[in-house]
Amino acid sequence: DETGKELVLVLYDYQEKSPREVTIKKGDILTLLNSTNKDWWKIEVNDRQGFVPAAYLKKLD
């Protein structure tokens, strides 16, 4: 059920640097789980959840 889920576009590649982070690729469109922290957003990638720098993402309307 995708209702109410926010999507984000990945602006730059990011390689995870800790187990709490996930790797993302430029151009991916992913589900945003939590954006309350202005610097690190929690997203879902391939059934994995983790954090990436918010500056690497853009919210889609």
Rank of each mutant, 00 (worst) to 15 (best):
E2M: 15
E2R: 04
E2Y: 11
E2K: 07
T3R: 08
T3E: 12
G4V: 15
G4D: 11
G4L: 15
G4M: 13
G4W: 12
K5E: 08
K5T: 11
K5C: 09
K5L: 11
E6D: 12
E6K: 13
E6S: 13
L7P: 04
V8A: 07
V10D: 00
L11D: 01
L11I: 09
L11S: 02
L11M: 09
D13N: 08
D13A: 07
D13I: 01
Q15N: 12
Q15T: 14
E16Q: 11
E16S: 15
E16C: 09
K17Q: 15
K17E: 08
S18I: 04
S18R: 09
P19L: 09
P19S: 11
P19N: 12
R20L: 14
R20H: 13
R20D: 12
R20G: 15
R20Q: 13
R20K: 11
E21Y: 04
E21I: 02
E21M: 04
E21G: 10
V22I: 10
T23E: 03
T23C: 04
T23Q: 04
T23N: 05
I24E: 00
I24N: 00
I24Y: 04
K25P: 01
K25S: 10
K25I: 08
K25M: 09
K26Q: 10
K26H: 06
K26Y: 04
K26M: 07
K26T: 07
G27Y: 05
D28R: 05
D28V: 06
D28M: 14
D28G: 06
D28F: 06
D28Q: 15
D28K: 05
I29K: 05
I29Y: 05
L30T: 05
L30F: 09
L30Q: 06
L30V: 15
T31C: 09
T31Q: 13
T31L: 14
T31Y: 10
L32T: 01
L33N: 03
L33F: 04
N34Q: 10
N34E: 15
S35L: 04
S35V: 05
S35N: 07
S35E: 11
T36L: 10
N37A: 09
K38R: 13
K38S: 12
K38C: 08
D39E: 12
D39I: 13
W40E: 04
W40V: 03
W40P: 00
W40H: 03
W40T: 02
W40N: 02
W40G: 01
W40R: 03
W41L: 02
W41Q: 00
W41S: 02
W41I: 02
K42A: 08
K42I: 11
K42S: 07
K42C: 10
K42N: 06
K42F: 15
I43Y: 01
I43V: 15
I43C: 04
E44I: 11
E44V: 11
E44K: 10
E44P: 00
V45C: 09
V45Q: 07
N46M: 09
N46P: 06
N46V: 10
D47H: 12
D47P: 03
R48E: 05
Q49C: 09
Q49S: 10
Q49R: 10
Q49I: 15
Q49W: 08
G50E: 04
G50Q: 04
G50C: 06
F51T: 03
V52A: 13
V52H: 01
V52S: 02
P53T: 01
P53F: 02
P53Y: 03
A54N: 03
A54T: 04
Y56S: 09
Y56W: 06
Y56T: 10
L57D: 01
L57N: 00
K58I: 12
K58Y: 15
K58V: 14
K59V: 10
L60T: 06
L60D: 03
D61R: 10
D61F: 13
D61Y: 09
